[in-house]
């Protein structure tokens, strides 16, 4: 019997548990020549803000051991240009498309959510309260229980779309933030966003990144991500999308074992654009080989 690898994130049904992460997969089209998008469980779009954002100064990326730091700073065209230029292309993408939204105030999040709620081509929203590279909003919301609740609750009132809240690892107690997001009305949680980090150039005695600090991603962060996903899965009953340094189907299984419902692929896309496809296939092959019919049966002993 063919294993069923479809999963539910609230009302959203994904054909498989492998998503491509916001900021790592553009608007889908960038990878369309290299990747069979229909083999992905879904795509999470580059973060959208109300107004256009220029982003941070360059250099914005530097490779670090088994990882990379980025300080892109949410460069994006803003909501109105997104609606004109990108939204019409989304209906052609043969998998679920999730919009990632970010604001400087709770009201901005709500305004974007309202505007995107009735748009064909968008299946769910991911609320980004965890971007470490912006001076207003972003991670500052995700580091405070009350603000997390406030943002999620305000967005919840504006949309009936499935609502995913993306959490920051740059907190003392991620379970309490996770609970606040669920209390605010989150249908699912995704974690982790990047870990705040830094790298110095000893020749110039300056930081490599113009923004000085950036978000660390890649295989280096996986143990931290896994621990946090495990903590959150114990604390809440909504589906959790695990991410942070996943490079292979084996890495994905670790997240599923600690309780994640789905996984999200970020930096791995840069290394191998076919990573998402290959991971989805790898999970399916594993289930066949071990005669597992239901993905939910993959659980920690």
């Amino acid at each position: 019997m063919e294993p069923d690898i479809s999963v539910s994130i609230g009302k959203l049904r994904l054909k498989n548990p492998v998503l491509c992460a916001s900021g790592c997969f553009g608007y889908g089209q960038e990878y369309a020549e290299l990747v069979d998008l229909s083999m992905l469980g879904g795509i999470i779009l580059k973060g959208i803000t109300l107004k256009e954002r220029q982003g941070n100064p360059m250099p914005r990326i530097i490779e670090t051991p088994a990882g990379m730091l980025n300080s892109v700073g949410l460069q994006n065209m803003g909501l109105s240009r997104f609606l004109r230029e990108k939204l019409p292309l989304l209906s052609n993408i043969p998998t679920a498309v999730i919009a990632n939204i970010c604001g400087e105030t709770p009201e901005e999040y709500a305004a974007i959510a309202k505007e995107l709620s009735d748009k064909a081509g968008i299946s769910a929203l991911e609320i980004n309260i965890s971007c470490p590279n912006v001076s207003h909003g972003g991670m500052s919301f995700g580091q405070d229980m009350m603000l997390t609740f406030e943002v999620v609750n305000l967005v919840r009132k504006q949309t009936s779309l499935p609502l995913i809240v993306k959490l920051s690892p740059n907190v003392t107690d991620i379970a309490s933030i996770a609970k606040a997001a669920v209390d605010g009305g989150a249908d699912a949680l995704s974690l982790i966003n990047t870990l705040l980090g830094m790298a110095m150039d000893i020749k110039t005695k300056k930081p490599y990144l113009a923004n000085i600090t950036g978000g660390l991603s890649g295989p280096a962060v996986k143990p931290v991500a896994l621990r946090m996903v495990w903590e959150v899965c114990k604390a809440v009953s909504v589906p959790v999308i695990g991410q942070g340094g996943i490079m292979s189907w084996e890495d994905s299984l670790e997240f599923l074992l600690v309780g994640a419902t789905a996984v999200c692929i970020g930096t791995a896309n840069f290394v191998n654009p076919k990573a998402g496809m290959e991971i989805a296939q790898g999970i399916k092959d594993y289930m066949k080989q071990h005669k597992i019919i239901d993905l939910r049966k993959i659980r920690m002993m």
Binding site: G23, C24, F25, G26, E30, Y31, L34, K46, G55, M58, R60, I61, M68, N70, V72, Q75, T267, N269, F270, P273
Partner: peptide, 11 residues
């Protein structure tokens, strides 16, 4: 990073 216009790292 990506080389295909997705990550906005090389601006």
């Amino acid at each position: 990073a990506c080389g295909v216009g997705a990550c906005l790292g090389c601006v």
